[in-house]
């Protein structure tokens, strides 16, 4: 075991898979000699060479096409999109192409591609760096969307994502890259995609969340506990497909739930979680399922992040509305 930040755990997962499978290729803007703008690919080109870890021209759409083309030749591409706000440039390659690759060829081809990309607020980035656009990806049949919140999860989920034979979008929250360390096994391990984790057990309320909001939710749960409420926190880890079993089991136990996301109310995936609970567990509910989200504006100018981003106080407030309904 070693104490790792999430970014170190990601590098460790990439190193593990570059060693395990000679078809794994890591490429993107500045991921080679520079080791990535966040050091996620630090040292990898030196260890595995320019044939395995390489820089590309500055064009996201081209990177997406490159990944698809390489997959037809038996490679397992792990491209990086420098910031997920730039996904609009590569929407066709992702949603229009690789997500459909297996289906449109009736299984003749498939796209074992993992797209890594940082996102998320709280670190005062310039425009279109921090936007939460996972909702767009979650709406596309053919994709899986993974968002880890801890170093341990990041490593196990990234190894699983790379080994998956269909495209996976792996979104890394910038605020979580170096915010804390955690014990992470040095050996390889996997965490199944599509499986949530109960990060904290409780009986009175389920908080269903993902990304940086997992930590705000735990903070809120601890505060609520001091006031006598027992709160369960579920980290979805994979937001598409959802782990229905874990969500419903928790709601059937607590009878109350809120869904917490950093994205705007009209975005993200909270509405989908609410709909699934309504479909499957309405008779267990003692209160409506409410959402904690950002306002439906464009992502804030950096100085406005503190008043705009949802935080533990918003979560406590909404949790109380549900608890006192």
């Amino acid at each position: 075991m070693a104490q790792m930040t999430m970014i170190q755990a990601i590098t460790d997962a990439l190193r593990t898979e570059l060693r395990n499978d000679e078809n794994v290729l890591v490429f993107g803007e500045d991921v080679g000699v520079n080791g990535g703008v966040f050091r996620a690919t630090e040292g990898l080109q030196k260890e595995f060479g320019e044939e395995r870890v390489f820089d590309t021209p500055l064009a996201e759409s081209g990177i997406g096409g490159l990944a698809i083309g390489l997959s037809t030749q038996g490679y397992r591409p792990v491209p990086e999109i420098q910031f997920f706000g730039f996904v609009y440039e590569v929407m066709d390659s992702i949603s229009g192409q690789m997500a459909r690759w297996r289906y449109r060829t009736g299984g003749s081809y498939h796209a074992p591609i993992t797209i890594r990309s940082p996102f998320g607020g709280g670190v005062h980035t310039p425009e279109l760096h921090a936007d939460s656009l996972e909702g767009l990806m979650a709406q596309q049949p053919g994709l899986k969307v993974v968002i880890p919140s801890t170093p341990y999860d990041a490593k196990g989920l990234l190894i699983s994502a790379i080994r998956d034979n269909d495209p996976v979008i792996f979104l890394e929250h910038m605020k979580l890259y170096r915010s804390f360390r955690q014990e992470v096994p040095e050996e390889e391990y996997t965490i199944p995609l599509g499986k949530a984790e109960v990060k904290k057990e409780g009986k009175d309320l389920s908080i269903i969340t993902y990304g940086a909001m997992v930590h705000d939710s735990i903070k809120a749960a601890e505060a609520l506990e001091k006031e006598g409420h027992s709160v369960e926190v579920i980290d979805l880890r994979t937001i598409s497909p959802l782990d229905i079993e874990t969500i419903i089991k928790s709601v059937e136990k607590t009878n109350r739930a809120i869904v917490v996301q950093e994205a705007q109310k009209q975005a993200g995936i909270a509405a989908n979680v609410v709909a699934e609970i309504n479909d499957r567990a309405i008779l267990s509910l003692d209160a409506p399922v409410l959402r904690v989200t950002a306002p439906d504006t464009v992502y804030p100018f950096s100085q406005a992040e503190p008043v705009w981003l949802p935080n533990h106080k918003d979560i406590i407030e909404t949790a109380k509305k549900v608890l006192e309904f």
Binding site: G69, T72, G74, Q97
Partner: peptide
Amino acid sequence: NQIPEDVNVIPPQIIIGAQYVQTAGVALGL
């Protein structure tokens, strides 16, 4: 669109231009 295994083609591309970026990837793979 189920292409026989020994035939090196993909189905006709409807998104005009997408086949060009993909070709760069296939060629790099080769």
